[in-house]
Design a protein around this nucleic acid. Structure first.
Lengths: 216, 216
DNA sequence: CAATTTACCTAACTAACGTTAGATTGAAAA
DNA sequence: TTTTCAATCTAACGTTAGTTAGGTAAATTG
């Protein structure tokens, strides 16, 4: 009577299997897409038989939903956490730089889940897509505010359309899952260069501005 | 005897059906991914029966290859054509701007084919992926040269890693297929803004630089 | 120890897949 | 008119998909 009624008692073994199933599904989803990912493949990688998957999940779609939700959550929490940890007096550009770094780091650290979501969003059944649409919209709104406030404060140029800017920026960030190779450079380097290009642009400064060094 | 031996005579009807099959396949590939795209769906949209598809293509993979190749070709040819049409004395930044615009315009004008390739590259069978890998590599090399020469000429900053820059740039361009809405703004506007942000960055110029107007 | 429950397996079902062989149609060629 | 052939259909083949029902070993509970 000490234990409350909260459904079947799931032990540590179950959690481990569940994790293995999700890991396998995330990888397969990333590499093959939703339609080509089979429960038998998932089961094989999780070291169980296909039928046993249904002890942990009610359907293939439920596995999909879990993978997508985790890929989204991990990035959102990283960015929100990083922003919250910033000193109160942080400038707007500083906040944007922190958000870029956090987004990139979370994205590439949990590559299978995040890139599964990025690649297959748009190819997934309507029902699954709508499930975390609100979360996704909130995340987009977060970036939108970040940019708008920076613009209102005069820290980014007034002539930019922040909607287009946000889309371009998030695009270049999300696309890193397609080319980033941890053996070539640490994530931090990519983040630093991205912010640098984003803030200052790629064009070399004109001659007369180049003479005075160390403006920073 | 007036006709040479060159296999079965394919008429206009056949070409029309072939085009319908490819259009349907491109859209389905984009929306569902390779594994979920079925020949019966393709056939239905092309207004024929599933078995008849095999009169035009030997296999599902062959359809896939045709869609992917077309998506790639259309972009490459647009960019190379635009660059070739540039006056001989065009500056490096001017060349980059032209390439960005051409890439974006081709990408978004042939949305189904290009975004099918972008979304499903990496989820497609090895054999199909390798088929136009050389073309893809050549296209990447084109951009790499474009950026490197601009850097060598001193038109883009010397402290940038052109490999990372190229990846980030192509990422933000390719991602436009996920968010671009022709009802909101013309492609040219997006291209212009992308180039503007790319060259000058988003940060507002410092106060002392803002006084002198019309530096261009 | 007996009873229960967890976590899995086995074996099967139906549905749908890519693919194929053999008719069938309609228009052009002879 | 007869022949021919491009273009399609019909009907099926073997395979594999997601899913389910019923069984089982091991651990937990009483």
């Amino acid at each position: 009577m000490t234990m409350q009624a909260k459904g079947p008692t799931r032990g540590r073994k179950s959690e481990a299997s569940r994790a293995q199933i999700l890991d396998a599904a995330a990888r397969l989803l990333r590499d093959q897409g939703y339609g080509a990912m089979t429960l038998r493949q998932i089961a094989e990688r999780a070291d169980i038989k296909a039928g046993s998957v249904y002890y942990h999940f009610a359907s293939k779609d439920e596995i999909l939903d879990a993978v997508l939700a985790r890929g989204l959550h991990v990035v959102i929490e990283a960015v929100e956490g990083r922003l919250a940890a910033l000193p109160a007096g942080a400038g707007h550009l500083e906040r944007i730089a922190a958000a870029v770094a956090a987004h990139l780091e979370a994205l590439l650290a949990h590559g299978d889940y995040t890139s599964a979501g990025i690649r297959t969003f748009g190819q997934v059944p309507e029902a699954s897509r709508q499930k975390d649409e609100r979360l996704r919209e909130e995340y987009i709104a977060l970036w939108q505010h970040l940019l708008q406030q920076a613009q209102a404060a005069g820290e980014i140029r007034a002539d930019l359309d922040t909607s287009v800017l946000r889309a371009l920026l998030l695009g270049s960030l999300n696309w890193t899952v397609e080319w980033y190779d941890p053996a070539r450079q640490p994530v931090e380097t990519v983040a630093t260069q991205t912010v640098d290009i984003l803030f200052r642009g790629i064009a070399a400064p004109p001659m007369d501005a180049r003479a005075k060094p160390g403006a920073r």
